[in-house]
Amino acid sequence: MRAIEIVLPAVGGPETLQVRVRELPRPGLGQALVRVEASGVTFAEQQMRRGRYYDMPAFPFVPGYDLVGVIEELGPQAPGAIPLAVGQRVAALTKTGGWADRVLLEAADLVPVPDGVPAAEAETLVTNGATAWRMLHRTARVRAGDTVVVHGANGGVGSVLVQLARAAGVTVIGTASARNQEAVAALGAVPVDYRGDLLARVRELAPGGVAAVFDHVGGKGVKDSWRMLAPGGTLVSYGSASTRDRAGSGMLTVLRLLARLTLWNILPNGRSAHFFNLWAGKARKADRFRAELREDLTEIFTLLGSGTVRATIDRTYPLHEAAAALRHAESGTAVGKVVIVPDAPAA
């Protein structure tokens, strides 16, 4: 079976992406061949092209952190495996490999997508939805009536965080640039411009502090995120966007952030700080990781199907325009997810 893939050959700009055609083997034991209907652009690809993602594979490789597609062929399945069928729509977290028109995956990593949920809409909630749901409900354990801060509330993860928090009865203060204030308000958050004295503005809105802060920015600003917390509050750090364009080791940036969070956890003030890693636990407890991911995505797809949560798609690009998709995602103007879809037959 032929596959068309987008390859990142080395450190470089979006223009360095290449198109590759290769033959895929037939699915073996426990595998599935999936025809990709939608993949997406995440912050991970932005770091990977700079060589700064902390556990990225060696070059060259196919980017694509997640996908939604249809099963074209199934290999023999192990006893007790989750029932799957040819023609079924499924989602998968891949970390790499999603920017292709066909992929060969482990069937155990596939999550069924409910009937009636469009592929591109479901795709916006795979990485972003799983990240947001787990940070809210498994890490911060928010409760109805809480107030939280979501940095980058107009972005891919941020816009989902806002919606899931609002669905749980949580008040959200969402930071964004001035041009995205209206979009953030439409999601149900109280918009705040991240420029200026952000800490003072948050304290005006929540004088006693907030129950949780979700910070993908990192850098020096994470100190203010810590100061926003109420006693017993939780800081969830899940990225270092402020250091994206800096030269040097991405691993060193993460280690510095981890050291700071660890130090804060030692302080006797009742607050806690966590670094969120979506893949934590898969290597040691793969079955549990897969079961929880399946549970979380099923909840999220149900909310999407009911209209409680909506998919925020900024723009879609055909596969052969992956470079333009990556460039647009990095522009800072996107509201929601940038999605990559299959090429039209003429392309």
Rank of each mutant, 00 (worst) to 15 (best):
A3T: 14
P9H: 05
G13N: 11
E15Y: 00
Q31H: 11
R35S: 10
V36I: 14
V41Q: 00
F43A: 11
Q46P: 01
R50F: 02
R52T: 00
M56H: 02
F61A: 11
G69R: 06
E72K: 01
A78G: 01
V90G: 05
V90P: 03
L93V: 13
T94N: 14
W99H: 10
D101C: 04
R102M: 07
E106A: 14
A119Y: 06
T127R: 02
G129Q: 06
D146G: 06
V149R: 10
A153Y: 05
G155E: 07
G158V: 13
V162Q: 13
L164E: 06
A167L: 11
V172A: 06
A176S: 15
A178N: 02
N180S: 15
E182P: 00
E182D: 14
A183F: 01
A185R: 15
A185D: 04
V192P: 00
L198T: 15
A200C: 06
A206S: 14
V210S: 13
A212E: 07
V217L: 14
G218H: 00
G239W: 04
S242W: 03
T243R: 08
T243G: 04
R244T: 14
G248E: 04
S249T: 02
S249W: 02
S249D: 02
L252K: 07
T262F: 11
A273F: 08
G281W: 07
G281E: 12
A283D: 14
E295W: 08
S306W: 05
A311T: 03
T316Q: 08
A329G: 04
E330G: 04
V335N: 11
D343E: 14
D343G: 10
D343P: 02
